[in-house]
Design a protein around this nucleic acid. Structure first.
Lengths: 200, 200
DNA sequence: CGTTTGTGTTTCCTATAGGAAACTTTTCTG
DNA sequence: CAGAAAAGTTTCCTATAGGAAACACAAACG
């Protein structure tokens, strides 16, 4: 229930930072070129309900909204406007080619990107993996979190626990649990370059 | 309303990928050391309602959930994660060049990467930015979170609020608050390709 | 011009969300 | 171990979410 209010319209309008919710949903639906009927069916809700939602004539349940976002392929966070500033609020950090912060280890040669923004949550870096021989593969790397990798150039083989070694070419990408042991070696004549983005 | 079902408990359990919602909210509340009363007050809802939500005895409205996430300072996207523990423990997901899931809009042409892993936290995708003219720049894109971009090929100009437009070449990268308006256009003859990794 | 068809909107009704208060359980006291 | 106080749960009730169907309004036929 809501705090008492003179009339229904006022009440809904007032308590709603969500006025735009209906608008966004309608936009998303039209974007897909769907009718109320089609969208409703895709989300498993009635077209009358959807109409009311789009016109902000109702306060839909979380459940319903979730189904809609799924069906309409909406970015959900936008629906929660509350715009609490992130810790890098209003900021950006640029790193030009080759201008990253070098970080070398015996086996890898990293170039950390965008290191100015220390409070960011993802950690992007480029690694150069030297052309070498399979026999040199040593120990699993393992650190809590998730990791995404994209092969910028060259060819390499990715090793991860629980899986077969995987041959990767330029343009391929992998997302994995970085708590799972992993490592890679170059299988091309030249060094391979990989972009990694790591998240704790 | 839900499709008919024999009894209420079944119905709720069945339609709920959201069983974990109550759990998450309870966790968040206890984390803060709050009682139902306190949390309810902070969110502007009754303690009985909150109790029912935490025990999954009700399907709260979007509105109520929004207020709770705000009060409890919860990262909302997790609430939308369907099915299962929200980690990717021991898993990996590969996307070969050009094999991503296409997602086109009038202005952008995205290729979503590693979409098999639905519970991952970062969202990588490759965009092809069509070669065109500055005058065509339209509206800011804006969504809560952080974003990292890496220019795979071509040249483009990145626009972000609070900053001057920025010319980027192949190999350059930028990290920014995606809640800040942003958008880009290609400045090269050919289309530009950009790898984005987005985090909510 | 009516008829059809395909859209979105508005009733109408039932199941239920959510608040207040009764009830139960746990945690402090003395 | 009282008995009180504070936490959580359940009950009861009213306002309303959401589906079905009636309604409204087009555009596309004959």
């Amino acid at each position: 229930m809501e705090p008492v209010s003179q009339n229904k319209d006022d009440e809904i309008a007032e308590a709603n930072d969500l006025d735009h919710l209906g608008k966004m949903i309608r936009e998303a639906r039209l974007q897909k070129g769907w009718t109320l009927e089609e969208a409703g069916k895709a989300a498993g809700i009635g077209r009358s309900t959807l109409s009311k939602i789009e016109n902000n004539q109702t306060r839909p349940s979380f459940d319903i909204v979730r189904r809609l976002t799924k069906a309409l392929d909406l970015r959900t966070p936008q629906l929660f406007v509350q715009s609490g500033p992130s810790d890098i609020s209003g900021r950006r950090d640029v790193t030009l080619t080759g201008q990253g912060e070098p970080q070398d280890t015996p086996t890898y040669s990293h170039e950390l990107l965008c290191t100015e923004l220390t409070s960011k949550r993802m950690f992007p870096y480029i690694s150069t993996i030297k052309a070498r021989d399979v026999s040199e593969f040593e120990a699993w790397i393992r650190h809590r979190g998730e990791e995404f990798m994209y092969v910028i150039s060259g060819e390499l083989t990715l090793f991860t626990e629980h899986y077969r070694p995987l041959a990767l070419k330029t343009g391929d990408s992998v997302y994995y649990d970085s708590g799972m042991g992993h490592g890679c070696i170059s299988t091309s004549e030249e060094d391979a370059k990989v972009l990694w983005v790591s998240l704790e």
